[in-house]
Structures are given as structure tokens and as C-alpha cells.
């Protein structure tokens, strides 16, 4: 029985000039752009189309109860987590797996801070105040956009934790392949953080 070997996991493909993982993650991110793009479009259309007055009117910022201070803090946390993520990849490039793991662990910690702040200071108080997705269009979109984003953060936490733990065994047998996997995770993480960079002003400042 022959063993199947994945082609172009380290060296770039001669036509695309990308290794397979990078091509795959960019295709995935392209689909993500469409997903979040559709939701952002929904936000714009519903907001522009909302009546000026009456029960269906778009709520004023003060009525939403969203704190830009909490949103700003979480923005800062995610920007720093992107720095630690890219530093983990750079550490692998210089063959320092210990430092890379420390940076990855810091990224996971910052991601957990983001999720805990989101849950305890935003979601739970909002739901307790009756501001559930069924309250109005704003909260329907707020929970859909930020909830989907939070799910992506949780997905990133799982993948990065895997690379700190059992996934790092690949480093011993094929360090370049492992480095490429961390680079793909970093591309995903940057995309998720970039989505938040657009979400923050749209939801918290307008």
C-alpha cells in the first residue's frame, strides 16, 4: 500500500507560487469576506431604510447602551493579539519554538480576555436588560455580527491552542511545514481582527 503525500506543503506550487495551505486559507478568507460583507450590507440597508420616527426607527446611540469604552478596550486587545501572533511566526522562522509557543499562548490569553469582556460586560447585561436579538433590527444585527465574530475568535483559540499542544509535534519532523501552518493561522487571525476593526466604528461610534 502506498502512502499518499500532500504536495506543496512547504515549497510553492510552480503556477500559483503559493504553498497549498496558503492558497487554501486565502480561498477560505475570500468566502469569509462574502459572509461578513453580506451582513455589513444588511446593516447598511436596514439602517438607511429605517423610518425616521416611530417604533421601527433606528435607535439613537444612547438608546443602544453600547459602551465605546468597552469596545475600544477590546479593539486594543485584538490589535495587540495580532502583533503577538505575527511574532510567533517570526520566532518559528528563526527556529525558536519556545518563544513561538510563548507568543501563541499570549495570543490565546488576549483572545480569552476579549471573549470574557464581551460576555460579562456586554452580552449578559444586554440580555438581562431585555435587549435581545428580537428587541429591534439594531440588536438583531448587533448579536449576529458580533456573535459570528466571537465564534471566529473561539475557532482561532482552538486552533492556536492545538499548535501550542499536540500540533507542535510536527515541528520535530517538519519544522517548515509547521511554520507554514502557523502562518496560515496568523492570516486567519489577522482577518478576524480586521473584521473587528470595521465592526467597532460601525456599531459603537455611529
Amino acid at each position: 500500500m502506498s502512502t499518499a503525500v500532500l504536495p506543496y506543503t512547504v515549497e510553492p506550487h510552480p503556477i500559483t507560487r503559493l504553498y497549498s495551505g496558503k492558497l487554501g486559507i486565502w480561498l477560505f478568507l475570500a468566502s469569509e469576506v462574502m459572509l461578513f460583507g453580506a451582513l455589513f450590507s444588511s446593516y447598511v440597508l436596514l439602517r438607511v431604510g429605517a423610518p425616521v420616527a416611530g417604533p421601527a426607527a433606528w435607535p439613537a446611540h444612547a438608546e443602544t447602551g453600547l459602551s465605546w469604552k468597552i469596545g475600544g478596550f477590546n479593539t486594543l486587545v485584538l490589535i495587540i493579539s495580532s502583533v503577538t501572533m505575527v511574532m510567533a511566526w517570526a520566532a518559528l522562522k528563526t527556529h525558536n519554538i519556545g518563544r513561538a509557543k510563548a507568543y501563541l499562548a499570549t495570543t490565546v490569553f488576549l483572545a480569552l480576555v476579549f471573549i470574557v469582556v464581551k460576555l460579562t460586560l456586554e452580552y449578559i447585561p444586554k440580555i438581562q436588560a431585555g435587549h435581545t436579538p428580537s428587541h429591534n433590527n439594531f440588536f438583531a444585527l448587533y448579536f449576529t455580527l458580533t456573535g459570528l465574530h466571537a465564534l471566529h475568535i473561539i475557532g482561532g483559540i482552538i486552533v492556536i491552542t492545538y499548535f501550542i499542544g499536540p500540533g507542535s509535534a510536527l515541528w520535530k519532523t517538519d519544522p517548515e511545514y509547521f511554520t507554514n501552518r502557523v502562518e496560515c493561522t496568523g492570516l486567519y487571525w489577522h482577518f478576524v481582527d480586521l473584521v473587528w476593526i470595521f465592526l467597532f466604528p460601525v456599531l459603537y461610534l455611529t
Binding site: 505575527v86 492570516l187 476593526i197
Partner: peptide
């Protein structure tokens, strides 16, 4: 686009 290039873009947008 590599992670390095994407990171620079991210820093500019941030």
C-alpha cells in the same frame, strides 16, 4: 500575500 505583508496592511488600517 504573506503574513508579513498582511500584518503591515493590518497595522496601516489599525
Amino acid at each position: 500575500m504573506s503574513l508579513k505583508a498582511f500584518h503591515i496592511l493590518f497595522i496601516v488600517i489599525s
